[in-house]
Design a protein around this nucleic acid. Structure first.
Lengths: 373, 373
DNA sequence: GTCAGCGCTTGAAACGATTGAATAAAGATG
DNA sequence: CATCTTTATTCAATCGTTTCAAGCGCTGAC
């Protein structure tokens, strides 16, 4: 039928008429001055004094003419761009999509527009984007960074320019930027508790890379629960992922480390992975080695990224409320924006959201064979 | 809505000094006029005549002062916003992430900023976002829509305002908007050819929903190959997904339909799904029914979304070059933008990208048992 | 009889850049 | 020496809005 684009198709002519309807047009056509039109259409404080009939007239004319305010011109005077920078460290990470959705949705409610930026985990790209966002005078900045390198520049440039910022999935060292995270410690606890309840006692762990801020608290939650439940963690069953900039490297790491664990011939009936991707890697390695999941070994992940419910077997995991986190970040920066507008002071805030255990098919009760406990 | 932010933390004061460095500052500080500064910093045509020493001076001062051009003010005169609208019909679809990456990357090369919009598959949301994008005077619009409803408004509003547009994963009926798609027919052919080469003869098919533009050509490719290879398609082994607005409904559909196929007791050694999600649903159903993939039944998908390589078993599929498609769309609209700038005419173009077969673990040679062929 | 207030509206100055036309000096041409 | 180019820079208008201070024609109060 059709193939490559051999077809000449339509020719777009640059139509000379660039008929934009400006506020002056509305003014002229309604018989009032631009000032009045502006006041009415923005429902500015002064609008209290405008006669209802006038308002009605102006609004009608504006609609009839199809007037659309010019965001740029408006900014020039009011300093409000109605846009927010949304910077990802790597949108490729499945963690990010629901967060993006949450942010988008939150901004939409306030008629703000998101300017999207993706640092590709590169510092210079991050800086260049920051530059561009500043040129576009975003009113706030949201940085999504679960898997990340540190960048202190952020703080300096932003608070100097008085731009509210919030981070998701990461905290600035120091106390200067609002942040939204999951309660990793509680999450670690939840996961291990689940396995323990199912009767598992010999549990392998693949810890997250040192570099990641999530790793330590998750492990802490695990240790705390283990201690309180009298569960012994066998160091020979604990491995730690290496640092990496590739958000999908967890899969590879989970695979390799699980292979290694299996070869060690140390028996374990459950495996707890740092995150979902690692868990999926682990499952593949187990399956390949002839260990059935969950019959012979339970596996639990962390995050509940979108694909976790689709994998085979579907993954038991600790859910981060990603969309809600995106939404919350929007609320936080909006609060900052409004405070700035009203010349109030406001507080930086740091949130730890509650994780939730999602039980699916990759875990089941331990088979009691011999002297397990 | 807030929870555990017990810590009072830092108080952000609205620093009264909003010390923005304007072009006038650079002019004053360098001893030249704003006009000269503008000409130099933009490397405008007139810059040919500016003395090298002057250029150097101005550039130095600009850098020293940390001057950053104000995108809005610039727009007001030059009509160039350096932004592009990027509208998704549903970012939740795993198809979208690589496309977004491709677009982002393409725009970044040209120092354009993407304004992100997600219609959530809702018409009114689409229209509202279109409105917002127009208010922000994006120079072009890219619409990503694999799973979609038709909207004719787009054409009217855009070409009236002379904004270049391109669609990805979908074509406007009529010939008015550029588009980038995969060659679905070739893809369908590739997939079936693969199964045929592996010796499969009894093949089940789950076709895509009627609503989707991709469905028909994929099926056509299948039929054409079947005919040319003398392969018979058993109508009892062909099902078609219902229309739906949920991009992830394919999984559910694949699961249910495959269950049904299995129950029909019609033997098949391979299954070809409309897309990857459908394929994953199918695999789950097969596994649950005790049919091993790929040992007892091969499964092939379409798209190669990011999770396809991570599933168990990893999925053999037909890859769409999603990132490249995003990039191409950027090139197309940029061409349009430049043409408009130079008051040239230019051509709408429609591209069909070549798909690529990716062979992974969900397919293997058919077991020849009895009289298969 | 002046003044303050009222209800409604507007004039005009920004905002920070770009740009076509103008200026000015220096060198080239006849 | 007058005129024309070329080079180097600037003037001033403009883009579409917001916003402050002011204006209007009144009324009622001091």
């Amino acid at each position: 039928m059709m193939m490559q684009s051999e077809t000449p198709l339509l020719v777009k002519r640059h139509s000379g008429k660039n008929q934009t309807i400006t506020m002056r047009d509305v003014a002229k056509s309604s018989g009032f001055s631009p000032a009045t039109v502006s006041i009415v259409l923005n429902n500015a404080p002064l609008a209290r004094y405008i006669a209802p009939a006038t308002k009605k007239r102006i609004e009608e004319v504006a609609k009839k003419l199809g007037y659309r305010p010019n965001a740029m011109a408006r900014f020039l005077r009011s300093k409000r761009s109605h846009s927010v920078g949304v910077m990802f460290f790597d949108i490729t990470d499945p963690f990010c999509t629901p967060v993006l959705r949450g942010i988008e949705n939150g901004l939409y409610q306030s008629s703000y527009v998101p300017i999207f930026a993706d640092a590709h985990n590169q510092r210079n790209r991050f800086e260049r984007y920051l530059e561009m966002l500043l040129e576009h005078h975003v009113e706030a900045l949201i940085v999504v960074a679960n898997w990340l390198f540190v960048d202190i520049q952020l703080l300096a440039d932003l608070s100097k320019r008085n731009i509210t910022a919030a981070t998701i999935g990461w905290e600035m060292p120091g106390n200067d930027v609002s942040s939204v995270m999951v309660d990793n410690e509680a999450g670690g606890r939840l996961a291990l508790e689940h396995l323990h309840h199912l009767g598992h006692r010999k549990i392998a762990f693949i810890r997250g890379p040192k570099m990641l801020i999530d790793s330590a608290p998750r492990w802490k939650g695990i240790q705390k629960f283990a201690h309180s439940a009298g569960l012994e963690i066998d160091p020979a069953l604990v491995l730690q992922l290496p640092d990496s900039f590739d958000p999908n490297s967890g899969f590879e790491g989970g695979y390799r480390f699980t292979e290694e664990l299996v070869q060690r011939k140390k028996r374990f009936t459950a495996l707890m992975a740092f995150d979902d991707l690692t868990a999926l890697g682990a499952i593949r390695a187990l399956t390949k080695a002839g260990v059935k999941v969950p019959e012979n070994c339970s596996v639990v992940g962390f995050d509940d990224v979108p694909l976790s419910s689709l994998s085979a077997p579907s993954l038991t995991t600790v859910r981060q409320p990603l969309e809600a986190m995106g939404n919350l970040a929007v609320n936080i920066v909006m609060e900052g924006v409004n405070a700035g507008l009203e010349k109030r002071d406001w507080n930086i805030s740091r949130h730890k959201m509650n994780p939730e255990l999602v039980i699916r098919d990759s875990t089941q009760a331990a088979v009691l064979s011999g002297s397990d406990d």
